[in-house]
């Protein structure tokens, strides 16, 4: 009875957040499969544990689960990389180019003039976002993109309102600096 009444609004909510959640997870992991697993895991956890909560609480709770999953993934990666580092001191990492600018996709010659500039600068922004510290990226994506207010962002990030403000302002500062630095 209860399950049937919440299934529809829950489905609607998940449809409304799944794309953004995937983009956020992919940005953090840079891996499509990992991102899909993280999003599915977050959806599952929300349904299993928080479906009975009021609808207004779903967005911050869902993003909190998502962020926790992303952080767990990063922790696991860190440990995995640590092991790899110990086992394989002469890895091929020296050959890899870690310059974020190199990762920017060629915007192509689609729009001449300002259009191309804008596209290139957005591509740069994407790289800059992907390279932001985890907490700053969370704050920026939740506030600027998902439109969560400071209090909801604090719930989603599991920190105080003051910390959200700090992370967000640092994110804005870093991104602006990055964009200005590489402005053509």
């Amino acid at each position: 009875m209860e399950s049937e009444t919440i299934q529809e609004p829950l489905d609607r909510f998940l449809v409304s957040v799944e794309r953004k959640a995937f983009v956020m997870a992919r940005m953090a992991t840079r891996d499509t499969d990992e991102a899909l697993d993280i999003v599915q895991d977050a959806m599952q956890a929300l349904v299993e544990k928080y479906a009975g909560r009021p609808e207004a609480e779903w967005p911050p709770v869902f993003y909190r689960i998502l962020n926790n999953r992303i952080r767990d993934w990063h922790r696991r990666q860190k440990i995995r990389n640590l092991w790899r580092g110990w086992l394989k001191p002469w890895s091929e990492s020296n050959d890899r180019n870690d310059d974020p600018l190199e990762q920017i996709q060629d915007p192509g010659v689609v729009d001449p003039g300002e259009g191309m500039d804008r596209k290139a600068s957005m591509a740069r922004l994407e790289v800059a976002l992907a390279n932001l510290p985890l907490r700053q990226r969370e704050a920026f994506l939740l506030r600027a993109w998902n439109g969560l207010d400071v209090a909801s962002t604090a719930v989603a990030m599991g920190c105080s309102v003051g910390s959200v403000k700090t992370h967000y302002s640092r994110a804005i500062h870093t991104l602006r600096q990055f964009l200005e630095e590489y402005r053509p």
């Binding site: 998940l14 959806m43 994407e126």
Partner: peptide, 24 residues
Amino acid sequence: QAAELDSTIMARLRQGRKAALGSL
């Protein structure tokens, strides 16, 4: 970016959502 996700990703997201709702 979110609007331009390809059909494979969308299908997997849909599948994940259905699975999650199934556990309801």
